[in-house]
Design a protein around this nucleic acid. Sequence first.
DNA 1: AGAAGTTACATGCACATGCATCAGATGTCC
DNA 2: GGACATCTGATGCATGTGCATGTAACTTCT
Lengths: 131, 131
Amino acid sequence: MTETGETELVRRWRDLLACYSTVSCALDRTLQEAHGIGMSEFEVLDRLVDASCEKSRMHDLADAMYLSQSALSRTVARLERDGLLERSMCADDRRAIFVKLTAAGRERHEGARKTQRAVLAEHFTATPAPV
Amino acid sequence: MTETGETELVRRWRDLLACYSTVSCALDRTLQEAHGIGMSEFEVLDRLVDASCEKSRMHDLADAMYLSQSALSRTVARLERDGLLERSMCADDRRAIFVKLTAAGRERHEGARKTQRAVLAEHFTATPAPV
DNA sequence: AGAAGTTACATGCACATGCATCAGATGTCC
DNA sequence: GGACATCTGATGCATGTGCATGTAACTTCT
């Protein structure tokens, strides 16, 4: 049984907070500057590319992300406004919404992914392994 | 040289995101319910207690936290409104603002800290060491 | 079939945050 | 001393988020 001391506990939390703040801030800023999309937007595009079919239901997307249902709804709305994805009806279940990348979306993701990897590499190699 | 592969990099990032989201969400929710303060508010109180004198300048506080200057300003305003701390002038530099815990603030922190430790313990023992 | 419950997504609202900016106080250089 | 740059903290504004709720579409139960 590892007696996780209180001090140790707080140290872990502060490390986590520091690490997350630094990386997410850098990621958000860089993606915004270089590609005009935020972190949440990128994550959505990324999940869509991960899903081989690149056509997912909102609900499935939400499950895979750390974003509330409403936040996802709006993020997808922004992406649609920018022409990076399309929403379409689902014939089987007319409540559900299918989300599909457009060519522009795929292209944008392509570039943004390179940027993301670069930022991650920069920040994670400095901290070999979060103790 | 540890060749940090791309996949590994992304995995690390998603783990970080997942961990942070889970813990910060639980922390925020629990603190709010049990003590009526959010995570940022707690962190400010915590830093003030950490500083032995419990009387810090805004600027020093900001340095120790992952919060923008404006966000800190407003967080402190909320804490003052709730009577948990007091702002006071600094004689030496009349631009600077001193922030000092009140008795109520110290008491609130006391309780909140217990809650925080409990939540941290719960979430960090489950994940012995973020790989 | 019809009523009640559940699910999927959108939206009104309150609120916290970051950016840019403002006002006041200090510091610096002539 | 006076002009200009710098610093400290507050605030207007735009934006993203979560919660609660609304609407429409299934599902279940009788």
